[in-house]
């Protein structure tokens, strides 16, 4: 069963669409569940499907299609760093070398203490602030340097 507060938030999303089009809220529902649980388990997928009265496969194919959903545990803080062209030109590679060394992980790995996970991201649509990263799909940090990265990481708890 989905927690009551998640259901309430999904209900708010459902108001955006015609009554018979509950499927339209699937992306928001998955986002809400992921924010709560940290990732999307098979059980979460089934719960969202049941709540919206749509087939599980319809939920799963959305969860696997869009990059920001995580179908594996992704640590307490998911750090997504853009490596696309504008960031690459502003030397995201050096930043990444530093990040991987600091966290002692590569892309798609979680630190031993379960605190951080590192993801490679495609363009985030904020290239004027390259290089950049987004934490937990919500908090964007721009104009990153190794020092700034260290400071941000230290403040995450």
């Amino acid at each position: 069963m989905l927690p009551k507060k998640i259901k309430e938030k999904i209900n708010k999303e459902l108001l955006k669409f015609p009554k018979e089009q509950k499927r339209s809220a699937v992306m928001a529902a998955l986002r809400l569940v992921q924010n709560e649980k940290g990732w999307l388990s098979e059980k979460s997928i089934s719960e969202v499907a049941a709540y919206l009265s749509i087939p599980e496969i319809a939920v799963l194919e959305v969860a696997t299609f869009y990059n920001m959903y995580d179908l594996k545990e992704s640590g307490k803080f998911k750090i997504a760093i853009c490596t696309n062209i504008s960031c690459m030109l502003r030397d995201t590679d050096s930043l990444l070398a530093h990040v991987k060394k600091q966290l002692k992980i590569d892309f798609n790995q979680v630190t031993e203490d379960g605190k951080f996970c590192l993801k490679e991201s495609e363009c985030m649509g904020a290239c004027g602030g390259a290089p950049l990263m987004v934490v937990n799909n919500q908090y964007m940090h721009e104009n990153l340097t190794p020092e700034k990265f260290d400071q941000i990481i230290e403040e995450l708890d």
């Binding site: 062209i85 504008s86 363009c123 649509g125 290239c127 004027g128």
Partner: peptide, 11 residues
């Protein structure tokens, strides 16, 4: 939904 690399005006 601007995701074309180098595009960040709509934001």
């Amino acid at each position: 939904d601007e995701g074309e690399p180098g595009t960040f005006k709509d934001r």
